[in-house]
Design a binder for these strands. Structure first.
Lengths: 160, 160
DNA sequence: GTCTGATAGTTCGATAATCTAACTAAATCC
DNA sequence: GGATTTAGTTAGATTATCGAACTATCAGAC
């Protein structure tokens, strides 16, 4: 195993370091991935299909094309994702009553409840963490997170 | 388009709502995805390969198996990921001098610099956001994020 | 020393998820 | 009411992944 140190010569790693909060933020992002993977596994779906489920749960019934837009996926890929979810009973298609070309996809109550049973305690627990802080601190935390979103957005734009 | 409202009958969405900070946290997680996608596009690699690059940049040279472990991928898939990155000149393989079975994968200086050129301003800007807050507030933010990591971990475990 | 089992990495064949393009049906627009 | 657009699906190709088989090397038993 090669040492990680500030050695010379070849241009060694020298990872960017930052303050504890910034490093914790990185950790939050990493661990949310783990949570999603665990949740996907628990529902026997892949990451894409879990994402679709979450949109259907949060936004309510959606057309395939609206879902495709939210997922950043082609409508073709979305069709197959809905097929997979439907085969597992997680969603069902119904005809759009006002447009006979259209379809409405809706999360099935049971799967919705199962997903909520995992999500809600999570969200609740995260929200409850705030109670450990004073109102002023909560305000700071909230502002900080909003600023982080802004910074991420501007840098994502810069790169694209 | 169907209305999203608190209507009756079928068991409508009723998305879980939470305080602003909690919602902003969700937004942070979403937007980091966008950033990663933009960065991957800019380097002409897929999400997996960007992840590999980041590990090689942060940790320094790694064996394929160590990289596989970090990526949560089979060694077979990691071999092909390294192949893809090598074909683009983003990494190179060298023989492990102490184990003739072994290989060491290292990010190429140019690609490393390119990735750092995107990451460092980002990380720097995120870190600088902290300067908008008092030391006490920074402390609160840091504690909050650590607590969030703990909560996520415990809930991910619960689900698995 | 050499045989045995473990380890590092790659290759192979199969599977899964995605894309673009083509297609069908229905809506909208003069 | 015919032309164009839109919604969704289907078809074929591509890409990423996996498990299993394989090669080479190492480490330990004796």
């Amino acid at each position: 195993m090669q040492m990680r140190s500030s050695d010379a010569q070849g241009g060694p790693p020298e990872a960017p370091t930052a303050r504890p909060a910034t490093r914790s933020l990185r950790e939050v992002i990493d661990v949310t991935d783990d949570f999603s993977r665990a949740m996907a596994g628990s529902l026997s779906v892949n990451a894409t299909d879990l994402d679709a489920m979450q949109h259907l749960i949060m936004a309510g019934p959606l057309s395939p094309s609206a879902l495709a837009k939210r997922l950043g996926l082609s409508t073709a890929a979305t069709t197959t994702a809905i097929d997979r979810l439907e085969a597992l009973g997680h969603v069902h298609r119904t005809a759009n009553p006002t447009d006979r070309r259209g379809v409405i996809v809706e999360a099935s109550p049971a799967s919705r409840a199962r997903a909520m049973g995992m999500l809600m305690p999570m969200i609740g627990a995260i929200d409850t963490v705030l109670d450990e802080f004073s109102p002023a601190e909560q305000q700071a935390i909230s502002s900080y997170l909003q600023r982080v979103v802004e910074v991420y957005r501007s840098h994502a734009e810069r790169i694209s």
